[in-house]
């Protein structure tokens, strides 16, 4: 055994005779080169450029443009919208995942498909759906008008549109996880006297917490970054119904390059944080799953 290990690297290093299934060296280099080059040109370069443009006129100009009242109110609105949408979708996602993973019922396949719907519909279309529903000329428009409730071109419309597009993130993350875990542990908790809620709180939730957090982070990133659906229902009223992405677009159209890119840098920072957390959580989850597998009885004595 020890011999085998000490030989291993040496053999690999000086062997010109690679195994038959491996590509020749130059093809390997070309493919890796294309992949890295593509990511560099289309992803890293623009990202770097956002910050370059934002700081084109120095640090103070950057701070100043972020302190414009309309930009500040856009940031606040974006935070508010995601503070409403993320918890709602968290609750909905957990309920949907629980229902799909633990129960057998008619229309289950349809439910799973519908949960995915927001992924496959263009955000603009989902925005338009709300305009048709709640707009002044929409189905519920006159009734809402008579009650003096405004949804379209107001914050409620933005919340609804954001809810719609961020709908699948948590549920999608949890369903496969819960399905894989089965319900033995939950049943064990029931036989030990736990109520449904205690079982959920002490057994189910801890075992899916990393997946849940992962879903929440992705959901949040999308909630803060959504443009299309929100754009349709918002009405672009500066300082009132303008979220950060909408604000960036407006600044850009007004040729306020530094201001636009400063605001954009906030979203870019959000993206980087999301990416970092996502990577960390993925690693966490992989470890936990590996441990979970060794927890199953098919693995053996030490």
């Amino acid at each position: 055994m020890a011999q085998g290990i000490s030989k291993g690297p040496r053999v690999a290093m000086n062997s010109k005779s690679r195994r038959g299934i491996e590509e020749p060296e130059f093809i390997r280099r070309i493919l890796i080169g294309i992949a890295v080059g593509f990511v560099g040109v289309f992803l890293l370069l623009p990202l770097a450029n956002v910050f370059a443009q934002a700081f084109a006129k120095g640090w103070s100009a950057y701070i100043q443009s972020l302190q414009q009242p309309d930009t500040r109110s856009a940031v606040q609105l974006t935070l508010l919208v995601s503070a409403i949408c993320v918890p709602l979708n968290l609750v909905f996602g957990v309920i949907a995942a629980w229902a799909v993973a633990k129960f057998q019922f008619r229309g289950k396949a349809l439910l799973i498909t519908l949960i995915d719907l927001p992924f496959s519909v263009s955000p603009v279309v989902s925005g338009l759906i709300y305009v048709v529903m709640f707009g002044a000329q929409g189905y519920l428009g006159p009734w809402l008008d008579s009650k003096d409730i405004q949804i379209i071109f107001a914050v409620p419309g933005i919340v609804l549109a954001t809810l719609f597009v961020t709908f699948p993130f948590v549920a999608r993350e949890l369903i496969p996880l819960m399905e894989a875990q089965g319900s033995d542990a939950e049943q064990a908790a029931l036989t030990l006297g736990a109520t449904g809620w205690q079982t959920f709180r002490h057994v189910t939730l801890p075992s899916v917490k990393w997946g849940l957090l992962y879903g929440v982070i992705l959901c949040n990133a999308r909630a803060m970054g959504e443009f299309g659906a929100v754009s349709v229902v918002s009405g672009h009223i500066s300082g009132v119904t303008e979220t950060l992405p909408l604000r960036i677009e407006k600044l850009h159209q007004e040729y306020q390059s530094v201001a636009a890119f400063s605001a954009a840098s906030l979203l870019a920072i959000l993206a980087l944080i999301t990416l970092g957390l996502k990577t960390w959580l993925e690693r966490r989850q992989a470890t936990e799953q590996a441990l979970g597998q060794s927890d199953s009885p098919s693995s053996h004595e030490h």
């Binding site: 089965g182 033995d184 036989t191 927890d295």
Partner: peptide, 18 residues
């Protein structure tokens, strides 16, 4: 099930892994 005061040992053991 909660009120039956039984102890149940599952084939998979179903230990709480966390």
């Amino acid at each position: 099930v909660q009120k039956r005061n039984i102890g149940f040992v599952f084939q998979s053991y179903a230990l709480f892994k966390t």
